[in-house]
Design a binder for these strands. Structure first.
Length: 276
DNA sequence: ACCTCCCTGGCC
DNA sequence: GGCCAGGGAGGT
């Protein structure tokens, strides 16, 4: 489930331990995790003995700025999470990548489904990657509503699908897209181009409020606890979700039963009374 | 502008 | 045993 609030929460947790640290060891236990590297060996070679200068994020991508103009990029996919642990702490199952530095705790990427990945890219490779074709960050670069509206103009695809398209806006996933549409009072299957100026303004505001709330509560840890903060705590936003995963339960605002439908192969949760 | 597939684990 | 799951690339 890692979406923008989970990745940003992860970033904030990692920052004090990673920024300024020098990478001493790179251990890839599953080759699949470096599948986006042209040559798998390059991941290790480009990071070893280099210093981490900063830690950023764009959309759902975590980006470490490494000496030598290398971007160490981590994506958590569907089931990934990072754990910062002392080397003598037992490893959890599916610890697929371990990176040790000159600091006390090591970076462990745990990812059962291996949809996540790590990669060390040069600036040119980064530009040519999906990261290079990503829209503005939904949290730190959220465009004004007239700009957003131009992006939706003429689009017949459902607004839910457009919110998930990272080339338009980067960072929303299935949970926060549903939550933002509920807050905006907009039905998920509305064609993007059919939204009025007022509706786009409400949607923009709803995205901001939803992401802020998700961040404030440390992100969303669902029942399976696939996502946890790097220190092992659970994100508490799951208790404040308005629609996601609440199908069959009463709408918190009007009491109508929350519906679950499938839109573009993704589960979609919404209140048929509040969202039109 | 769509589907399909990549994986593993958990739940019914 | 079958179905479901936070994401995204790749092919048609």
């Amino acid at each position: 489930m890692p979406e923008l609030p989970e990745v940003e929460t992860t970033r904030r947790c990692l920052e004090p331990d990673l920024v300024g640290a020098t990478i001493q060891d790179v251990d890839v236990r599953r080759d699949r995790m470096v599948r986006r590297q042209a040559r798998p060996q390059e991941f290790r070679d480009r990071l070893l003995r280099r210093r981490i200068r900063g830690l950023g994020r764009h959309g759902k991508f975590l980006i470490a700025d490494v000496e030598g103009d290398i971007a160490w990029v981590t994506h958590l996919g569907m089931s990934g999470r990072v754990s910062m642990a002392k080397p003598d702490e037992p490893e959890r199952p599916h610890t697929n990548v371990v990176i040790r530095t000159d600091r006390e705790v090591e970076f462990r990427l745990i990812d059962p489904r291996t949809f996540g990945f790590v990669v060390a890219w040069t600036p040119e490779e980064l530009d040519g990657s999906s990261l290079g074709h990503m829209g503005p960050d939904a949290y730190s670069e959220l465009p004004r509503s007239p700009v957003l509206r131009r992006g939706l103009d003429g689009r017949s695809a459902p607004i839910k699908a457009l919110l998930l398209d990272q080339r338009i806006l980067a960072g929303l996933g299935n949970i926060y897209a549903d939550e933002a549409l509920f807050r905006a009072g907009i039905a998920p299957d509305r064609p993007g181009g059919s939204l009025t100026g007022d509706e786009v303004q409400r949607l923009r505001r709803a995205i901001k409020v939803t992401l802020d709330a998700g961040l404030r509560w440390g992100g969303t840890s669902l029942d399976d606890l696939a996502y946890l903060l790097p220190d092992g705590r659970a994100g508490e936003y799951v208790h404040r979700l308005r629609v996601y995963g609440r199908d069959g339960e009463p709408c918190r605002r009007c009491g109508t039963e929350i519906q679950r439908t499938v839109l573009r192969q993704r589960s979609t949760h919404w209140c048929p009374a509040c969202q039109t």
